[in-house]
Amino acid sequence: MSIQAYQNNSVETASPGELTLMLYNGCIKFIRAGKKSLENKDYAKKNEVLQKAQAIIRELMVTMNQDYAVADEVLPLYEYMLRRLIEANTQNDMEVLDEVEKLVTEFRDTWKQVLIQSRKAQYGTGGTA
């Protein structure tokens, strides 16, 4: 099985919670690639990967379940991260990229803990995310 086929299969068989974790990880990956491209003064590549990070934040925003009260707290943070990513991209601002990477990493780590706790509750085991 090729890496691409494995990745496609992983996405197709992932739970919604695992897909969200993959989105966070992808966003972090693209922000880091943007930082590296900015360091290398490869502005076209920086723009390309930071637009992918922005698209992931947008996807997280539109797929958020509005039925939960936490959505009212999380959506403004997603909007903030999106706005800051756009600013960092247009102004070539490494500090802003560091800030957003830190925020996305905190969201990812929190989400990972939520998945672990829900698996423990569901299966009575420690399972890993």
Rank of each mutant, 00 (worst) to 15 (best):
Y24N: 13
L103M: 15
E79T: 05
L19Q: 07
R108G: 11
I28L: 15
R84I: 02
I57T: 03
N89D: 12
A69S: 09
G126T: 12
I57P: 03
G124W: 03
F30M: 07
N25I: 01
K36Q: 15
V104W: 06
A5G: 06
L77W: 07
L38W: 07
K36G: 10
Y78D: 08
T110G: 14
K112P: 01
G34A: 13
N25H: 03
K52L: 05
S37T: 09
S10P: 00
C27K: 03
M94L: 02
M61V: 01
T20E: 14
G126Y: 06
Y80Q: 07
P76R: 02
G124E: 08
V49D: 02
L85Y: 12
L19T: 00
A69I: 07
M64Y: 10
G124R: 11
Q7L: 10
A55M: 06
K102W: 05
P16R: 10
P16K: 09
S10N: 12
I28P: 05
Q7Y: 08
A5P: 01
G26E: 01
G34S: 13
L85P: 13
Y78P: 09
K46G: 04
A88W: 11
Q113M: 08
Q66I: 10
K46Y: 09
K36W: 07
R58E: 14
N47T: 11
T105P: 08
N25M: 03
L85Q: 09
Q51G: 08
D93S: 03
T105M: 03
P76L: 05
L103T: 11
S10H: 05
K112R: 15
A53W: 01
I86F: 13
V70M: 14
S37R: 08
N47A: 13
S10V: 06
V96A: 12
I86S: 12
K102I: 05
V104Q: 06
N9V: 12
E18C: 05
E73A: 13
Y43T: 02
L97G: 09
N8M: 02
K46E: 14
T128F: 07
N92H: 08
Y80G: 00
T128Y: 06
E12T: 06
E48K: 13
T13N: 05
R83W: 01
K35T: 14
P16C: 09
E59K: 09
Y68F: 15
A5L: 11
L77F: 04
Q91T: 15
L75P: 04
E106M: 08
P76Y: 05
I3Y: 14
T20W: 03
L115W: 04
L97K: 09
A5C: 00
V62C: 00
W111H: 13
T63A: 06
P16G: 12
C27H: 01
A69G: 13
G17H: 04
M1E: 12
S118T: 07
K52N: 08
N40C: 12
Q66G: 02
A129N: 09
D72W: 00
Q7V: 10
D72V: 00
W111Y: 14
E95R: 07
E39N: 14
N25P: 03
D42R: 04
M94G: 01
V49G: 03
K45C: 08
M1V: 13
G17I: 01
Y78S: 06
Q66F: 05
E95W: 02
G126C: 00
A33K: 15
A71S: 15
Y24C: 09
K35F: 04
N8K: 15
E95P: 00
R32Y: 03
